[in-house]
Design a protein around this nucleic acid. Structure first.
Lengths: 188, 188
DNA sequence: AGTGTAGGCCAACGCGTGTTGACATCAGAA
DNA sequence: TTCTGATGTCAACACGCGTTGGCCTACACT
């Protein structure tokens, strides 16, 4: 096969470009982040970005690849699902900017929005099916959770609304946890 | 004064441009919406947009002026505040696209984000102060409500997540109402 | 040492953007 | 009717964008 095991010299450059892309996309969204700026951040010529990734769109697709790393919720006691979820999400938001890139870009870029729907369908919904009382209700319950979690991220990290920024992780968990708990296990 | 009472012929054009601008900004966000497209929608030359509004930024500022028209919550029974709020918001979202323009643009455009914070501070926070048990807690409680409401709008109107789009107004009110209720009147 | 090739730079392309100023047209007052 | 200002069109500008192709350089293998 064509899998070249030996590490190439270009791997470092590739990684640098990808890191710079994630940062720019997260900070400015898809249309504002420019190939030229990303290349400058990676101390490289803009044309190299094209050589490595083909186009801006393909670069974004790779930069916005994202694994939510949802914890194994089947091990969590039923009445603590809400808290466990917020906790996992808050931690994930803070140490990986890919999701913010996706959120910012998803607001204006149709492809990014589609990708968010994909992440929801591929990573969130399946977990919901295994956890919800009635699997038929899972999409609805997962959707409700998404509104609260993404809304939190939007206000805190993107719009930077002062009272939401001011909250501590613990406060967030205490307030939002019960909301998710009800969305997951509450009666219709 | 220079206030010209007599209606001018240009008023219709001005209004047409503003309407087209609201639509484009709502549908595509700030950077994707172009002066040329807006002008075409209004059946006018792009240069007229500049003559009337000075710049794209100023046009956006006017197109994104927005009155939430929050109902008078002091007349609402304390235990129905949550439902009243969601109801008011859902209705408002559906018949005015300015807020969606603001939401889409706010994700990438710093000025639009600033404006959202302004709306929050100017229209939401004051209401919260009058309604919350302890006015000192008002910003926190209002901020929490904002996360849920904006998250709902994001998932439903911008990202168009299928389960959230599928919900009826009544379902939304039944599910999200209690959340806001707790954010407003729940104990810390 | 010689050579092929991967890695990188440079200059330019075509395009779409916001914005500008010179010119046309038309309504209404004189 | 004539003239003046408001209303609108046209063509072009300077700029930044994504993208392309040609050229240089330096490493790795024989």
């Amino acid at each position: 096969m064509d899998s070249d095991q030996r590490p190439r010299r270009s791997d470092a450059t590739r990684a640098a470009i990808l890191a710079a892309a994630r940062e720019r996309f997260a900070a400015e969204g898809y249309e504002r982040a420019t190939i030229r700026a990303i290349a400058a951040d990676a101390s490289i010529d803009p044309s190299m970005v094209m050589r490595y990734f083909g186009s801006k769109e393909k670069l974004f697709a790779l930069a916005a690849e994202f694994d939510l790393r949802l914890p194994d919720l089947t091990a969590v006691p039923r009445e603590e699902l809400g808290r466990a979820l917020v906790t996992a999400f808050v931690r994930r938001w803070e140490d990986d900017e890919s999701l913010m890139a996706l959120l910012r870009a998803g607001a204006t870029n149709p492809a990014a929005a589609e990708r968010m729907r994909g992440i929801f369908a591929g990573q969130v919904a399946p977990v919901a099916v295994r956890v919800c009382p009635d699997p038929a209700e899972a999409p609805l319950r997962a959707g409700l959770c998404a509104t609260q979690i993404l809304g939190l991220a939007l206000c805190r990290y993107v719009l930077r609304m002062p009272p939401v920024v001011a909250m501590s992780s613990a406060e967030i968990i205490d307030w939002v946890g019960p909301t998710l708990q009800r969305y997951i296990t509450g009666e219709l």
